[in-house]
Amino acid sequence: MGDRRKPGLPRHDQGIVSRHAALLLAICLAAGCSSIKTYQARGPDNVFVSSAISKMRGAVHVHDVDADCRTAYAGTVQLDRPEIALSLPPERPSYLVFSFEGSSLFSGSTSMSVGTLVKPRPGYRYELAVTYRDSIYNVALRESDPRRASSRELPRRGLQDCKGL
């Protein structure tokens, strides 16, 4: 998470936080003052996230994006299973921020995040393959049309590409 920002918000930032700060965060979470909420389905599942994450905890934070490219946090889903399904509103852009968090004795707690815009087309299926292994990560997005059995890879798009989406 960025400092003083909504959960996982869209910054191409990665952060290292000390153990003390992580402890404060844990206390805050335990006290119920976290702004993180579970993402609620808003229709049929159309985005499928497969993840292979090693030695880190992964999550996807969903943000709605309006016509002026402003974001509004909608919720979070933990990547604690090999595949999860999301229902994103069709014909509207959403910004998905994938976060990876971990800790070690020497470096303290670390977290990093990477975001991509997704604007689902009705009737299409979207597959996101998320990997994190040996400090190398990848987020690959594929759009497929079940009616034609065709698919194509989509580039990762940042918020700066919102207007042209």
């Binding site: 400092d3 990665q14 952060g15 936080v17 700060a21 303290g108 990093m112 990762r156």
Partner: peptide, 20 residues
Amino acid sequence: PECLNVSVRTISQTSTSYQN
């Protein structure tokens, strides 16, 4: 550009110092 044009925020805190 996609992978390396990034920012990293490092926050370290002890009982006597704070660095951001």
